[in-house]
């Protein structure tokens, strides 16, 4: 399996995400995101931090056009996503894995079905309906579930799992897509502190093993510092900090979040 992925990787250009001059305004003249540009490539994990309501979720959803951006461009491994629609957009979305704050699993399906949902973009509707996935996909799904400690839960329904387990399933689903970039929208906000750390470990580790650039929306600055190699600070729709965690000072945090009492 590893050799297969290795060969495939060698043939492909480096996996990357590039966002150029992205603007999103729900109401004309009042942009939520204003001229956002950044680039992530290779094995790199980036945290996007910022107060609630500053457009972090909107930014992540503009990348895969769940929310259509007002202007600007998004490139995934060199392909411009923002101009696509219909089938081409669907095919481009397969390259973008997404992990959600509230897991967004299909509660009534089993863990395995949820993980295989990541392959829906690749299999035909008829195969999806019959649940006949390529053996390759099933093998990978089992291996993935084993590596994140869910091997015993394969046949359980998703609604019987704990929050941490559900988020693992959510991550496995995203990895199943063989994405070129992994987006995580507040993946730990619905979890307790201990589970949050475990989930961050799983995310970072999987992104490293599968060499997928990782972008995490997160409001917990400590988690961001601990697990990522780069932090982008967002405030009022613009980037106010972009650099390694070590350079993120209290002054930066004050600009990002405002106030200072919480910094003690």
């Amino acid at each position: 399996m590893t050799t297969r992925t290795g060969n495939a990787l060698a043939a492909q250009p480096e996996r990357s995400l590039r966002v150029e001059h992205l603007v999103k305004a729900y109401q004309p003249g009042k942009p939520v995101l204003n001229d956002i540009s950044f680039e992530v490539r290779g094995q790199n994990s980036v945290a996007i931090i910022g107060p609630s309501g500053t457009g972090k979720s909107t930014l992540i959803r503009c990348v895969n056009k769940l929310i259509p951006p007002t202007s600007g461009a998004v490139f995934v491994s060199g392909e411009n996503i923002s101009r696509l629609s219909g089938r081409a957009l669907r095919h481009a979305r397969r390259k973008i894995g997404m992990v959600f704050q509230e897991f967004n699993l299909v509660e009534r399906l089993t863990v395995m079905e949820n993980v295989l949902c990541g392959r829906l973009g690749y299999v035909s509707v008829w195969q999806a309906w019959r649940r006949t996935y390529p053996q390759d996909d099933i093998d990978r799904a089992f291996a993935l579930l084993e590596s994140i400690g869910l091997a015993d839960f394969v046949h359980q329904r998703a609604d019987s799992l704990s929050g941490g387990q559900r988020q693992r399933v959510g991550i496995a689903r995203a990895i199943m897509q063989e994405p070129h970039v992994l987006l995580a929208d507040e993946p730990t906000s619905s979890l307790d502190p201990k589970t949050s750390v475990e989930i961050m470990e799983v995310l970072v580790q999987l992104s490293e093993v599968h060499r997928i650039p990782l972008i995490i929306n997160i409001h917990d600055v400590e988690l961001a510092r601990r697990f990522t190699s780069r932090i982008i600070g967002l405030s009022q729709g613009g980037i106010v900090f972009d650099g390694p965690p070590a350079e993120l000072s209290n002054d930066h945090l004050k600009t990002i979040y405002g106030g200072e009492a919480w910094l003690q």
């Binding site: 895969n64 769940l66 957009l89 669907r90 095919h91 481009a92 979305r93 397969r94 390259k95 973008i96 894995g97 997404m98 959600f100 509230e102 897991f103 967004n104 699993l105 299909v106 509660e107 949902c117 990541g118 829906l120 973009g121 509707v125 999806a128 959510g170 689903r173 995203a174 897509q177």
Partner: peptide, 14 residues
């Protein structure tokens, strides 16, 4: 719940 719908749309499912 529209959450799984959003997730599957994001994965490029038809």
């Amino acid at each position: 719940s529209l959450k799984p719908v959003e997730a599957l749309r994001a994965s490029g499912a038809p």
